[in-house]
Simulated assay, not measured.
Amino acid sequence: MNPLTSTTIITSLATGTIITSTSYHWMMAWIGLEMNTLSILPIISKQHHPRATEAATKYFLTQSAASALILFSSTINAWKSGTWDITQMTDPTSNILLTSALAMKLGLAPMHFWLPEVLQGSTMKTALIIATWQKLAPMALMIMTANNLSPTILISMGILSTIIGGWGGLNQTQLRKIMAYSSIAHLGWMASISVILTDIMILNLALYLIMTTSMFLMLIWSKSKTIQDTTMSWTTSPTMTIMMMLTLLSLGGLPPLTGFLPKWLILEELTMQNMTTTATIMALSSLLSLYFYLRIAYTTTLTTAPNMMTTKYKWRFKPTSPSTLLTMILPMTLWILPMTPLTLM
């Protein structure tokens, strides 16, 4: 791709998210979402491959439908209340439509079907953008409208997302699909707490972005696309392989790693709100996610690749070094839990 074209697309991608996150008028928020969608499409379909074209088409149709629902919801609200202010969503019909549209934008169950397919049809770098940056604009709208969204629908979607996010990843061998189901499960935790305490949701989102980014960067570095590929990462760098294992355990939410912090706070808050059943179901469903994280951790660090394979000297062909970004975010991915008192102040 032409450098000027790449710069324009990436700038538009960033600008669209910033416009949506900083606007208080529904029309400006919708324009930001459309800019964001139209900018990511050339990035997804950059490879001239049927899978990439299919992924771009699925992404475009889903996001366009969600954007149209948001516009429809805001128009109904403006018709009933006379204001286009994002924080003044007073009409119940508009709120239900908006909840559904944001769930579709994010990939919450039961509107999650596009996310694993789109990630699988994209490159690892594009999948990283879709799983992290593309969640910011809908999340910003969810934070701004959290007081008006339908609590019953959001909590139901949250429970369903954590179950499907764990269940769907069990039978997968493609790492991008596994990361997609991981994303659905994490978004379920965020959706369930969004109507109760948005501060915890913002903390969960920040930690999710950090952990997912570091995981994707390590997969890009080790050129791993399937679980089978991870068995060869030890021949590239034993240290990085151990870091990958710890990151997977952190994504699974095991103490004393960072990933335990948001789950701990969410379960505590749900219990305080007398939602013990919801908390129990979500805690049990996280065990499903933990299973497939442990499966990847097992193949990455606890199995030795056969010595007769031609790839045993993988490290000789293309020496790579971890990026500066990975070096910065790895400590945050692993060791924020001891700083919990500071994050809660």
Rank of each mutant, 00 (worst) to 15 (best):
S183D: 14
W30G: 09
N95K: 11
W167T: 04
Q120H: 14
M1A: 09
L33C: 11
M139K: 03
T247N: 12
L284E: 01
A14I: 13
L294G: 03
G82I: 05
L102H: 05
P50Q: 12
G188R: 04
W221C: 07
T132L: 09
M332T: 06
P256A: 06
F317P: 03
A103T: 02
T123E: 14
A29D: 06
T126L: 07
L136K: 10
N171E: 08
A305D: 06
S214P: 07
M240G: 13
L115H: 01
S321W: 15
A305M: 10
L267I: 14
A68G: 12
T236I: 10
Y59A: 04
H186E: 06
S6L: 15
M104A: 07
L249R: 06
G121H: 04
M201T: 15
I184F: 01
L219S: 01
T231S: 02
M309L: 15
P92C: 05
P50M: 10
L98N: 07
M157L: 14
G121E: 08
L106P: 02
H186D: 06
N77P: 12
I153S: 12
M157Q: 14
T231C: 03
P50T: 12
V195S: 12
T311D: 14
L284N: 02
T20H: 11
A140F: 08
S289V: 00
T5F: 13
L98D: 04
T277S: 03
S250L: 05
L249E: 00
F60V: 09
I296A: 00
Q88E: 11
W26C: 10
P322T: 14
L334Y: 02
S192Y: 05
P255H: 08
T301Q: 08
S150K: 08
M104L: 15
M28L: 12
T311S: 11
T303W: 04
